[in-house]
Design a protein around this nucleic acid. Structure first.
Lengths: 231, 231
DNA sequence: ACCTGAACACCGTTCAAGT
DNA sequence: ACCTGAACACCGTTCAAGT
């Protein structure tokens, strides 16, 4: 087949770093952070891979810029709030943003918050924990709270992408051999298999449960360190 | 260049499913679960990709078999132990195994425990939490404890593989603009950059901190549900 | 400075034969 | 049943020119 167009119909704007990142963010919303390639992104811009290298860098540099942009969209809670509602609001508020840009939570959870837009969140969060009684443990506590919440979103991203994996189906025959613990596990698998809505509901429940138990854990530690017997 | 050997020097044993998985486990110990390809694994067996497809299946099926094998090597705590020491021993004991086979923790954390060898652990762990006071929340609590610990290992796997990423270096100039929270974060980055031993020490600290705070969180919830005021 | 053509060295996977 | 040859349709990345 001959080329359809001898003269390429180009979009008027030149390809710039800003336009590349904008297109990458949009593409991430459609197919997730691992769903696009440097080639498909170039095609979306009606351009070529080498142009992206020229303006931004390799695939990892483009993905990093997307993460920076997505983190910048997290709603920030009122800094006057006490530590517990501040973190609860931050983590619950980040979820809709991260669910829109699937794959970003996974990268944040595994690679750490290596983007400038995360720094004000870290700064306030760590300082807040430190002066609320965690002292030197504040950074460890912050890491614990954030990575727990991010992981729970990353797991759901994977489930949404993969659906019910064959491996999960292969497990079913083994479940009847077990006791009451496996019965509860089997019931959860059934909920996951019941469709996207049921999966979504279950993921939301696990996410909130994860956040609240993590906050409980930090609360217990603060009580222990400050000698507070608790309510 | 002509072929070095017209008649291939083959290992005596035929390629079987068991030998493929054994080689994949060994290769995972060397280069991590994402470090080998179906082609490099075939070469290690002095064989060809299609043979692996014939005996085991696609890359994902081979990786799944590796995870199954690695989980089977977790040391299991005494089932008579109360919930807190049982989980603490399980999670601390799993770490050396998962650190030997890098990448497995990440897959377990993100894909869930979809291997048969995980089922006895789930069965006992969930039942233990249920009868210790968590009741219907036992599976959510179990998920919370496991995914927290697994994520913390997965993060260290990535750090060990990637070393200090350029992104982390790019962050340094921003750190001085912040307050006390960022100073603590910057100090942690310095520890990560100080070399493999310092990174390892820090990762171990974070891992134990994560486990203990997660256990605290579940402990607080059990106390809340059972009306126990705690010690 | 920015864009284009062409290639390199890989992937996972599959088809069609061989023995 | 098991092994081998060959190819398909991709990747990320780089080199060498063009304008």
């Amino acid at each position: 087949m001959p080329k359809a167009r001898l003269t390429r119909v180009r979009s008027k704007q030149p390809v710039t770093r800003a336009r590349i990142i904008e297109a990458a963010v949009l593409l991430t919303a459609e197919v997730g952070l691992e769903g696009w390639t440097i080639r498909s992104l170039a095609a979306r811009l009606d351009s070529w891979p080498q142009v992206l290298y020229h303006h931004v860098g390799d695939r990892d540099a483009v993905a990093h810029a997307v993460v920076e942009e997505v983190v910048a969209r997290f709603p920030l809670p009122d800094p006057e709030l006490p530590w517990r509602p501040w973190f609860r609001e931050l983590l619950l508020g980040a979820r809709p943003v991260l669910r829109e840009y699937r794959g970003v939570a996974r990268r944040l959870a595994l690679h750490g918050p290596t983007v400038p837009s995360a720094l004000p969140i870290i700064d306030h969060g760590v300082a807040l924990l430190a002066r609320s009684g965690l002292g030197d443990e504040a950074l460890a506590g912050y890491t614990f709270l954030l990575s727990g919440a991010l992981s729970s979103i990353a797991i759901d991203d994977d489930r949404a992408r993969l659906g019910v994996t064959p491996e999960m189906g292969d497990l079913t025959p083994h479940l009847h051999a077990g006791g009451e613990g496996l019965r509860a596990f089997g019931a959860a698998l059934v909920r996951l298999e019941a469709g996207p809505d049921a999966r979504e509901t279950y993921a939301g429940y696990i996410h909130i449960y994860t956040i609240d138990r993590a906050l409980d854990g930090i609360g217990a530690r603060i009580a222990e360190l400050t000698g507070d017997a608790g309510p």
